[in-house]
Amino acid sequence: MFSFFKKSPKENTSPAPTQEGWLTRLKSGLKKTRDNLQNKVSGLFTGRLNDEWFNELEEALILADVGVKTAQLLIKNLKIKAKEERVEEAAELKPLLRSMLIDLLSPLERSFDPDRAKPFVLVFAGVNGAGKTTSIGKLAQHLKNHHYSVLLAAGDTFRAAAVAQLVAWGERNQVDVITQEKGDSAAVIFDAIQAAKARQIDVVLADTAGRLPTQLHLMEEIKKVKRVIAKADPSAPHEVILVLDANTGQNAITQVKAFDEALQLTGLIITKLDGTARGGVVAAIAGECPKPILFIGVGEQLDDMQPFSANSFVDALIE
């Protein structure tokens, strides 16, 4: 169930990462989140239920960046459930919370299927420093391991040395990178799609410059990027991905909403989950503006890019 490409015909030939391996990594990646929730939460799952107990649970959730709104909603439902099932001991609530979190997060699961089109075009958007370029590097490696041919489009023409950064990733992965001396991202990506068609490439990964949702002119610019991509290939882009730093707080909601409005996102990539980051913001997103999560970044290694599974995520979070 954790296979990288659910429908990939090439899957059998690919060196699929072992379940064990990545689950451990996810767990260790999320260890801090867990520690954090655990210090608060598992210590909490003892004793009898009362209002104070629920307040403490709410705080633990807020500390994990679940957000006030979603935390309050979870607590409210948990209280109702507790009453319904006549739960009096805190310990009995743990499986209830677990299943509630899984219910909340499982709509965010989605498989990634680059065989839908050729070339399959992905555009990466996000705020400055979210990890777009690094995510592209990791994903390129992943795709290559699964025997897809990949082309990178250096669409971040704004930040100093962003192109050089992507080129370095391309060299590491032995993947070609399309760049332009001077030009805007739309033009570079357009070129890359044309090149991919000519070279029979499977997947195009298009980088863009980091931008904050409040920078309206830059949001307009990225809309244009999308329009121009459709000119190169009417069915493209096949995925429009927002790259989100797991360290982000409630601002993540604003980011998802703003980028979705501008670009109609098809999915998210959550990066830097290996840090002290809490996955909590994912729950906030699921509660307020659900978008499927295509991958999560759980480490510094090239292959530490994993599909998202609600079950494992919640397990890693509260087990």
């Binding site: 807020i62 500390l63 994990a64 960046d65 705020v127 420093g129 730093d245 360290n247 982000t248 707080g249 409630q250 601002n251 993540a252 840090g275 002290t276 980051a277 809490r278 909590g280 913001v281």
Partner: peptide, 15 residues
Amino acid sequence: VDAMQGQDAVNTAKA
């Protein structure tokens, strides 16, 4: 430190 960071920002800062 990134102004958009969540609850963890203070832990990072402290560390």
